[in-house]
């Protein structure tokens, strides 16, 4: 005859010592060790964040909140901006290990930062933004002009808006400059960002719009050179037809995108050079040729800064 199944009370008496023992072990060994491990991990994480974000990150964010307290008309959201800056700073400080030169050249108040555009995806803009927020005193938020078609992309448009990026039309730029904001312009546009590798560091033609705005609003222009972005993705050509068919500005062929695990940009070393502010007078409605000459001056200054950076660097990756 088989044993009767134990009644619940019997089961409880049997299990009680086991439970007590397990609790003892947990209380004596497991929990303190887990706490220790957690504490160590946390310390390590904090140390890492301080190394990456800098010890005054919170103070910088507080300054940002104060600046946009009443609500930004373009929809900048300090919380999203803080999160994004936290992520971008990992790239800025750890991944690309950006070297920044001449940040003291950026004047107070309204300013147009004009930079060369490169690297297939606009990481250069992110890094300039991170540098202006994390390295510049006081911290400044970069407002960049983005392509109109970005507005039609779900989520991306909300993200860009929350980060303080605005649609690239002159009216928006004018308003931001009147509010004393720092604006980042890539006058090469898509011509610059999707350059093939063979044309790296040769600046494409500049658009003229930024110069008209600078003259009209009497805003100083700070030329910025980004060195290191061209090598992050090797572009062997562009598919113009595909880009037009899909309705995107360019369709670069980057071989590494087709190799699993190599979608991230190569960890080149970024070098930023901020040149001395340039001021231009004259008539904003001048002929294209007159404006073009001034634009060419800016273009050559940036090209010279790029060339200087290229001459100074000894290796691409360190």
């Amino acid at each position: 005859m088989p044993d009767r199944a134990p009644s619940p009370t019997q089961l409880a008496t049997l299990l009680r010592p086991l439970i007590r023992r397990a609790t003892n072990i947990a209380a004596r060994d497991v929990i303190p060790r887990a706490q220790q491990a957690y504490g160590a991990a946390r310390e390590g994480f904090e140390a890492a964040t301080v190394r990456i974000l800098g010890d005054d990150f919170d103070a910088r964010v507080a300054e940002l909140r104060e600046r946009y307290q009443g609500g930004d008309p373009f929809g900048l959201d300090p919380d999203t901006a803080k999160l994004a800056l936290g992520i971008v700073s990992v790239f800025h400080r750890a991944y690309f290990r950006t070297e920044v030169h001449g940040l003291e050249n950026v004047p107070k108040g309204a300013v147009l930062l004009v930079a060369n555009h490169s690297g297939q995806i606009p990481i250069d803009g992110m890094i300039i933004g991170a540098s202006m927020f994390l390295d510049h005193d006081p911290p400044r938020v970069i407002r960049a002009m983005v392509e109109k078609w970005v507005q039609t992309l779900p989520w991306v448009n909300v993200l860009f808006r929350s980060l303080g990026q605005v649609v690239g039309v002159p009216e928006n730029c004018r308003r931001l400059l009147q509010d004393g904001e720092a604006i980042l312009v890539f006058p090469e546009g898509t011509r610059g960002i999707s350059k093939p590798f063979s044309r790296r560091y040769r600046l494409a033609d500049f658009g003229l719009g930024f110069m008209r705005l600078a003259i009209e609003t009497d805003t100083p222009i700070v030329p910025v050179a980004v060195v290191g972005a061209e090598e992050q993705y090797i572009n062997i050509g562009n598919l113009g037809g595909v880009a037009r068919a899909v309705g995107i500005p360019s369709a670069p062929i980057v071989p590494q995108w087709f190799i699993p695990g190599l979608q991230m940009p190569l960890p080149t070393k970024y070098r930023l050079y901020f040149g001395e502010p340039m001021r231009f007078g004259g008539d904003a409605d001048d002929d294209d040729s007159v404006i073009g000459e001034k634009v060419e001056l800016v273009r050559q200054t940036i090209q010279a800064l790029v060339d200087r950076g290229l001459a100074e660097r000894e290796a691409v990756f360190w």
């Binding site: 008309p73 109109k148 078609w149 507005q151 605005v166 649609v167 039309v169 009216e171 928006n172 308003r175």
Partner: peptide, 9 residues
Amino acid sequence: RPDNPQFLS
């Protein structure tokens, strides 16, 4: 419209 300036005059 996606290409509207933030504030239309």
